[in-house]
Design a protein around this nucleic acid. Structure first.
Lengths: 126, 126
DNA sequence: CTTCTATCTTGACGTTCATCGAAACAAGGC
DNA sequence: GCCTTGTTTCGATGAACGTCAAGATAGAAG
């Protein structure tokens, strides 16, 4: 319905002010990543290069019940970060790399565009 | 206490499973970005190339009270994304580019590295 | 074919956390 | 002194997180 997926927007966030709709679409994805459990789930799924992970391989890594894991997976799926398919008794999840690519692009600042002074790295370590 | 800041970790999230502490540190920052108001604030601050924005320039863009804006700015600051300084009557905020750079790196997948293997988590499933 | 078991999802409920505004407080300029 | 700019505190409303119980789907056993 609303239709503005992060797909069309991603105008870099750091170069121009986001309008309200874009902000809401992007925030939805970041919110999905704003939880340690979901972050670990995503990284477990993404790093499994076969591309696919069975839920039964994910659950034992946490001190949470299966329904809870299932809920978190649903949120990641609704955010467009992963997708799943049932194959026989098991359900397999995999990463949608375009989603993370988009997010990375949103956070990336056009290199060599150092605005005025910034005082960027001067202050802190490294 | 040497806190596990996102500083030292950022192991790409997509290539290897995140451990619990790393996940919590990274999730804290993503959670700060998981709100439309804070995203717009950040983008307004970041895109202002002078590098600095006065709070009085941010507030009118929202239908929220100043205290609420101040609260959101505080969360962004606690997440390490921005910093501020009082100069006379006004308070100026600016972006900490290292923070967004780190996040972008966390989400970036080694190009053309479709790993193969894994061998990590007792992959056995099959 | 029926029944049993295993895997995973969905719904409902209680607890905890986040969001927001009004009022009070701090800091500085006139 | 008074006024302006921002932050902080406090309380109320609403959303998110986690568990239990029930539903859905597929294979195996009888």
């Amino acid at each position: 319905m609303v239709g503005q997926d992060v797909a069309e927007c991603c105008p870099a966030l750091l170069t121009a002010p986001l309008d309200e709709e874009q902000a809401e679409a992007v925030a939805k994805v970041f919110k999905a990543l704003g939880d340690p459990v979901r972050l670990r789930l995503l990284s477990m799924i993404a790093s499994r290069s076969g591309g696919e992970v069975c839920v039964c391989d994910l659950t034992p890594a946490f001190d949470l019940s299966q329904p809870t894991i299932s809920h978190h997976l649903k949120l990641l799926r609704q955010a467009g970060l992963i997708d799943c398919e049932r194959r026989g008794t098991w359900v397999y999840y995999w990463l949608l790399p375009e989603a993370t690519d988009r997010l990375a692009r949103v956070l990336t600042r056009p290199a060599g565009a150092p605005p005025a002074d910034t005082a960027d790295t001067a202050a802190t370590a490294r």
